[in-house]
Design a protein around this nucleic acid. Sequence first.
DNA 1: TGTAGTTTCGTGTGCGCACACGCAAATATA
DNA 2: TATATTTGCGTGTGCGCACACGAAACTACA
Lengths: 343, 343
Amino acid sequence: MITISDIATKANVSAGTVDRVLHNRGGVSEKTAERVRKIVKEHDFKINAVASSLANKKSRTIAVLIPDYSETNTFWKDTRLGVEKALEEFLKFGVKLEVFIFQQFDASSYEAEFQKLIESNPDGAIIAPTFRNETAKHIPKIEANKIPYIFINIDLDGFKNISFLGQQSYKSGYLAGKLMHVSLSKPAVIAVIQTKLNVENNQALSRRIQGFSEYFIKKDHPLELIMVNIDDVLDAEMVKNTLNLELSKINGLSGLFVPSSRASVFVNALNSDLLSKLEVVGFDGTEQNLNSLKEDRISFLISQQSFNQGYNAIKLMVDFLIEKKLPTSKMYSPIEILTKENI
Amino acid sequence: MITISDIATKANVSAGTVDRVLHNRGGVSEKTAERVRKIVKEHDFKINAVASSLANKKSRTIAVLIPDYSETNTFWKDTRLGVEKALEEFLKFGVKLEVFIFQQFDASSYEAEFQKLIESNPDGAIIAPTFRNETAKHIPKIEANKIPYIFINIDLDGFKNISFLGQQSYKSGYLAGKLMHVSLSKPAVIAVIQTKLNVENNQALSRRIQGFSEYFIKKDHPLELIMVNIDDVLDAEMVKNTLNLELSKINGLSGLFVPSSRASVFVNALNSDLLSKLEVVGFDGTEQNLNSLKEDRISFLISQQSFNQGYNAIKLMVDFLIEKKLPTSKMYSPIEILTKENI
DNA sequence: TGTAGTTTCGTGTGCGCACACGCAAATATA
DNA sequence: TATATTTGCGTGTGCGCACACGAAACTACA
């Protein structure tokens, strides 16, 4: 394995000079710099990350801005676990983490935590850009500090994020359509359940619905989609009443499509005689959803491997900060199908 | 972060002594050794892997014994890629790889490569124990040398492998049953295609078939399984003739279940008027299978993330060799469902 | 020509650990 | 008691790199 001082010898300079060239630290005449670069390239020299991180006392801090999870909404739990797993692995390399948690449906909490993130002045940031306008408002500040940032889970256009990790919403909806389709021998009369908060915030959900219905169009299978709106998922009584009332009104209802991660909330609220006739397709392997899946209240879940998203986001950022590897601009997570049988 | 010399100071000894204790190198009185151990435990001191691997010139060699892949059978390609990816990552830590490749259906080639592996005297081994008897014959030799080994893909009982990475065959067959079930509105008349070589060698396949049929039993769905044997998958003409002949004889045939990774071979050989009426469920996302999936000749594939199996096997072994982490004895890969829509 | 300022570079030290070397104290042997 | 042997331990060096310090070499200007 070739070392810096090997390069130095070959270039007739000292190790210090090679070091300056490698780190663009300046103070090297263009002539010798070029000579060194040539030899580095010739031998495909790569800095030994082990030795480098040992010598490098300076630690890099990566800030993470994601929503909180609660007992009833554990969607972001896996992401957190993935992030923490990555931390454990990269601690040796002097990577530190600063996690900022906001309330998923509260824009002001998002802004407040975003502000804290900026003030912590990290070396890199991982952000779940849940609110478009608020994101647009704060991003310039971290760009001004030349802090690289990665978007996770939600893909916003028009930003200079070095990468995005998440799912292709349309495609995952399309797959949901297929799963619903194969499960139904009868005509498809499907209720789509949405909540107010989701409708407002999350364009990913509408893309999923779009993908879902276009699958049926493509397959020439008759489809009747009925939108059912739930105002407040936290109000259990209300959910129960509205849902049972609305769904029982629908003639020949054959399936339930829940484009958010809240499928379990709805199937749990549903009267069992109603539910038993339905195929249910939902998203994300939260604990609650997995339980409903195990107990046959949900037929299929489509999951996006949040754990890996969290893990890989950190990994990409570390590679970028330490080895200057530019990540792919979009990293789409595999669209995973979960059934009772394979969890 | 606490260092060896910190420990040394606290224990009133020198760094060298602490080093001896940590590595059980001997030459330390039991009294001081105990004192050091206590302080190490108190502070939960862990050797800094970065500094350690920098100082440690000695490299560890991991031997890998897996089948070859060919153009028509790329099953083991992903495993190889995963292994190589891991190598790249651990090269910095002085990990070396020695890959031994045998012919998948040739026990003597397995034995020959196994012998070479033993002679190379590696620090650890990753083995796909394709042949039970031959494995039993050679394993004692690597156990005699105290070389830890991991089984991959095929789970044999009665060995002292420190871990197994692979799929739960029964469960994956069971899931295949479900996928076939939901795809069928009619009674299930399923042809199961096997090849002679597979029948002889691979108990995993029969477990898959077992899981498959038990799904239908559990669901009380009438099932008629018809076994179709193909002598030689490599003889394209023969495959074509036998298959079309046998399948056209079956009344009301509704599906094809291929418990091996060769689904693509069979669907490609099948007359399109026969195939168009069938749901096909197979295993493993080989290139050929994925192509057939894309072109709607296969309905579902069940995959076992071979890439990760290869990658993780190396990772586990590295952790074991360097950080002495004992791995879980069984690491079951997620049972992944592949469709045209999510590959 | 002399002095100050600038550019360009070499040297030295330390990151935390592994391991060889060798010294001192304890023990055995004569 | 003198000498050999063993046991227990401290010290020093190097792994490959980052970075501070300061020394030449060169430039500018009076």
